[in-house]
Design a protein around this nucleic acid. Structure first.
Length: 648
RNA sequence: GCCGCAUUAGCUCAGCCGGUAGAGCAAUUGCUUCGUAAGUAAUGGGUCGGGGGUUCAAAUCCCUCAUGCGGCACCA
């Protein structure tokens, strides 16, 4: 019999008969390892204990202590156990796919009756029964015809379709535990009892399209999470609770920032507090962009369809545009308009006014552009995904040879701004040419390499996102990581050779003839609405002092201090600080609690001692300590903190 | 847009099998002047998301529309 040489993690090599399984190897080492083993890693591939090893390889036996394989197996087996539980409870249910995802798994089912939340407890109970049975997991390779016939006989058309999609040279693997089977590439645990029965939880039921295709059947998806032990599950659930506390919709209400109502779905009613954040952020962005040699413009909201036809938006995005038709009786002429969904066509109109010379380039045209898009109802989400929003948009009209330098400058500006806003870390995704695209390969070569060398020149690493570029050019996407580790794609830089062509933008070159400029579409925040949502969630409402809508509340302890309280407020306001007096007839405990919940970064408590000494007692949000300082000093210090980072 | 769930006082929520609404907080008004996360009492407050239907009777059952929530699809 042929031999294989296997190298163990400690470097020792041993010879085995070819076709030996990892389970047999584990058993040869010790009986306890045989029981504890969950899988193997063979030449870097996660390997089922039952799979034969036919070639020389490196091998490691995994146990539950090996976190990465353990979690993958636990979650994957949970998916199977859940599918079995569902089919045992409701035999008329068809199973489809059930992959492992971050933190857990899901499984998609086809069943006439909808699952209801109460079903989850039922399924969990059944899953625990299956785990307690410690059913052995068994696997076999089947040939295609047999597998197809099997699923046809069992009336499982989804599985038949999955088999059809698997390349012909790949073996089909079947897995069993108990009487239940599933088509699966594996690997899996040795028996169902290896799944910790107290460390998983079914989370939610949702609809999901078969194969992610909105033209196909809507299946029912059940999401679950699973961990190595009970404590990790607890930590995970706790983290979810903490994330829920940061929800910008909840904080928006509690901090009285904004509201939304059904008469204007997807649009925001900004309250005074929320609008303070908005304008403060916008003022800051305006100063930063002015400093980076942008010119600011403003363009119309309601624009004739002719322009959208010329730009190509009418054809591609008509369904997502708010169409405005003026009633014929009142109109001098019948016209069909659309609310602008983006600013670029309008910016080209400004560029096209008068002759432009190469000396005018690069021309960085910025607009806090108010846009409206008719987003699908299901896409709306708080202030993060809305139908009316304002982009921190700009278009840089430049020559091809300027792309590189402009990219560099943009990344520098973006880094500076993200840092000012409290996001030290961001990552970049580079999306190159998609299959369907405009422009010659030559132009794409130039655009991609310019974008790439510029990105590298700034010293930024990026992840390649192949084929994900816009149809008109490659793009960079800037993803920032918030305080609890979530990623948000905010900034973007897109190279566009198409729109200048479509809208006939030209400049006179050094040679005295007309040339086509390149447009760089770019945004840093993305939209103010969404970015403020991100700020709220990342800071859990505790915004940096300069962005806080209410920066200081001066609260009296006794009413005899009221007069001095107003004096303090006046002094703070004179320094440009957003300060309020709270002289209500309430205990200081009550006031401190209320303003703390309102996320006011500084509370100044004023009793008779402060009045007599002309001091204030400063209490910072989230800090139990107080700090008594002279009034003048407090005004000076808080005035400094209240300034935006670019003004310090 | 699709699947599921939800919509009751300003907020958070209770209201089983149909008999026309309830709590806590908030608000208002008293009393209380109290030194760092809820002092106290009284009072007011709801066409139960809109429309339609079933019924002697609907917050409750059915249909429909709207909005929201969780996903899916979408995101120029």
């Amino acid at each position: 019999m042929a031999q294989v040489s296997l190298t163990f993690p400690d470097g020792t090599k041993r010879e085995f008969d070819a076709g030996i399984t990892a389970a047999e190897i584990a058993a040869g080492i010790s009986n306890s390892l045989r029981k504890k083993a969950i899988s193997a890693t063979v030449n870097g591939v996660h390997w089922d204990l039952q799979w034969p090893i036919e070639t020389n390889a490196s091998i490691a036996i995994n146990t539950m202590k090996d976190t990465e394989p353990a979690l993958e197996l636990i979650r994957h087996d949970c998916a199977h156990i859940m599918a079995r539980a569902v089919q045992e409870i409701w035999p008329d249910t068809q199973v489809t796919i059930g992959p492992v995802i971050k933190g857990g798994w899901y499984y998609d089912f086809d069943r006439a009756e909808p699952f209801v939340p109460e079903d989850l407890a039922l399924i969990e109970k059944k899953m625990k029964e299956i785990i307690n049975k410690r059913d052995e997991v068994r696997t076999e390779i089947w040939d295609r015809a047999r597998a197809v016939k099997f699923y046809e006989d069992n009336n499982e058309p989804y599985k038949v379709e999955l088999i059809d999609a698997i390349p012909g040279d790949e073996p089909l693997r079947m897995y069993w535990h108990g009487g239940w089977q599933d088509l699966c590439r594996g690997p899996h645990l040795q028996n169902t009892g290896q799944v910790p029965g107290d460390s998983f939880k079914l989370m939610s039921i949702a609809g999901a399209y078969w194969r992610g295709d909105s033209d196909r059947a809507m299946l029912q998806r059940i999401y679950g999470v699973a961990f190595q032990n009970k404590n990790d599950l607890k930590k995970h659930l706790h983290m979810l609770e903490e994330a829920a506390k940061r929800d910008h919709r909840k904080l928006g209400r509690e901090m009285d920032l904004f509201h939304m109502q059904e008469e204007a779905p997807g649009q925001i009613f900004w309250h005074p507090n929320g609008w303070k954040i908005y304008t403060e952020l916008q003022d800051y962005m305006r100063r930063r962009q002015n400093g980076a040699d942008y010119v600011e413009v403003n363009t119309p909201q309601v624009v004739d369809r002719k322009l959208w036809e010329a730009s190509g938006h009418w054809e591609k995005y008509q369904e997502h545009m708010f169409i405005v038709e003026v009633d014929e009786e009142h109109a001098r002429e019948k016209a069909v308009n659309a609310l602008k969904p983006m600013n670029c066509p309008c910016h080209v109109q400004i560029f096209n006014q008068g002759l432009k010379s190469y000396r005018d380039l690069p021309l960085r045209m910025a607009e806090f552009g108010s846009c409206n898009r008719y987003e699908p109802s299901g896409a709306l989400h708080g202030i993060m995904r809305v139908r009316g929003f304002t982009q921190d948009d700009a278009h840089i009209f430049c020559t091809e040879s300027q792309i590189e330098e402009e990219t560099e400058k943009f990344i520098q500006l973006l880094s500076l701004i993200y840092k000012d806003l409290g996001f030290e870390k961001f990552s970049i995704k580079f999306s190159d040419r998609p299959e369907k695209r405009a422009g010659s390969d030559e132009v794409w070569d130039k655009a991609e390499s310019a974008l790439m060398t510029a990105t590298k020149a700034v010293g930024c690493e990026f992840e390649l996102n192949p084929g994900e570029g816009a149809f008109y050019g490659p793009k960079l996407e800037f993803v920032l990581t918030d305080a609890i580790g979530r990623d948000w794609q905010c900034g973007t830089l897109q190279v566009d050779f198409v729109l200048p062509e479509r809208l006939n933008a030209t400049y006179i070159g050094e040679d005295g003839t007309k040339h086509r400029p390149v447009m760089l579409h770019r945004a840093i925040l993305g939209s103010f609405e969404r970015f403020i949502g991100i700020l709220i969630e990342s800071f859990a409402g505790k915004l940096p002092f300069w962005l806080a809508p209410r920066q200081v509340v001066v609260a009296s302890i006794v009413s005899d201090a009221d007069e001095y309280v107003h004096e303090v407020v006046a002094a703070l306001k004179a320094k440009g600080i957003r300060a309020e007096a709270d002289t209500r007839n309430e205990k200081i405990n009550y006031k401190v609690r209320e303003h703390s919940l309102g996320k006011v970064p500084a509370i100044l408590a004023i009793g008779m001692r402060e009045v007599e000494e002309r001091t204030v007692s400063i209490r910072r949000l989230g800090d139990k300590r107080t700090n008594v300082v002279a009034l003048d000093q407090a005004v000076q210090q808080l005035g400094q903190e209240a300034r935006a980072p670019d003004l310090n």
